[in-house]
Design a protein around this nucleic acid. Sequence first.
DNA 1: GTGGTCTAGACCACC
DNA 2: GTGGTCTAGACCACG
Lengths: 116, 116, 116, 116
Amino acid sequence: MINLDYQSRTPIYKQIVSEIERYITLGILKPKEQLMSIREMAITLGINPNTVKKAYTELEQRGIIITVSTKGTFVADDIEKLICLKKEQIIEEIRVNIAELEKLGIKKEEIIQKLQ
Amino acid sequence: MINLDYQSRTPIYKQIVSEIERYITLGILKPKEQLMSIREMAITLGINPNTVKKAYTELEQRGIIITVSTKGTFVADDIEKLICLKKEQIIEEIRVNIAELEKLGIKKEEIIQKLQ
Amino acid sequence: MINLDYQSRTPIYKQIVSEIERYITLGILKPKEQLMSIREMAITLGINPNTVKKAYTELEQRGIIITVSTKGTFVADDIEKLICLKKEQIIEEIRVNIAELEKLGIKKEEIIQKLQ
Amino acid sequence: MINLDYQSRTPIYKQIVSEIERYITLGILKPKEQLMSIREMAITLGINPNTVKKAYTELEQRGIIITVSTKGTFVADDIEKLICLKKEQIIEEIRVNIAELEKLGIKKEEIIQKLQ
DNA sequence: GTGGTCTAGACCACC
DNA sequence: GTGGTCTAGACCACG
């Protein structure tokens, strides 16, 4: 399910964080749903459990998942905010890119026309 | 003039490369124009000359700047290709972002409306 | 009635111990009063009976409750000592906190004024 | 400088976090001041570098310190907020404790008198 | 030398 | 079985 690029400069644990975040925002992983156990995911991905743990820890600190010792790890109850934030982030990125293009001499109308 | 983020995972020399590239595409640095000397830039930015050297080497390998021994470093004559490539890159990034937003349930028309 | 924090580093059984202790010191559970059976509490809290058992065992070892085989579990007759001890513990905690605040540059009079 | 209790239930890395936080709030470590390198502190404390790293990572995520790769780790510029927050936290703890004591039948005036 | 990442493997408490 | 912590040691990029 999770795709890893071992050649990438991006650390594996960060890739896991992004992937899980993506599955949650896309609704593939739903609120309160249980994630794979650390060991299980480590075996599935063929990596060390500590690396998975690092990813889970980061997601927990961001409030995206909840870890219950001896029980497992779960998607947080309320992740609406996360999704909204994600949307705004992406739109902001697009705005920055459009501004960059305008500086390079392309008009906004022209850009939008190309995107349609 | 050049902004560096020392906390970023992106190496300092890569950041310098991007910044100079940006100044050239934006026309702030013009073809044939002379760049700061390695030493001068190192002092200005408060970093190691080796780091600046690494950045200049990478830019030269890409054909963006030219180093003339004992004379200095200059922006290449023809940088039209670079600018075109940059434009296409940015447009591609925007396309990826729009696809991402569509997956999150926003229609393309809605996105474009927000951007105008 | 009993609040558990499954995310806490404090083991569930320790949390149960604290909670029951708290109810006794506050007079919500009175001397000689019967506690829920292990099974009942386990079901109520949605946890493993072994966990409740462990909590009851610890409370019994401290002389706070008494288990009578086939009859049930009861709050001990004399829990005056427990209450006195609890009071002293809390006052000690406050003293430590005040010392901490003094180190941060707030005078004792100022602190006490804020508390009134 | 940093005291560790290896018997404690509190993990070593959490103890390091608390200690450093304490030194900063007390002004022993000042804004922008450099912390010991990970390796140095690991050797000093006789523990594994990974454990120190874990502590530093947590402190950085809280915005208390700043890590600059290949340069070192530094106390954040602005830690005034941290200190204010700390003070409020402690005062809140005292308030909770006083409320607890009141439930146990001691009047507020009596408590404050004992503290003076 | 500095931090960043990852592995392999161990031990623990809890349930 | 689950997560939590820690160790030992390795390799990497960067400056």
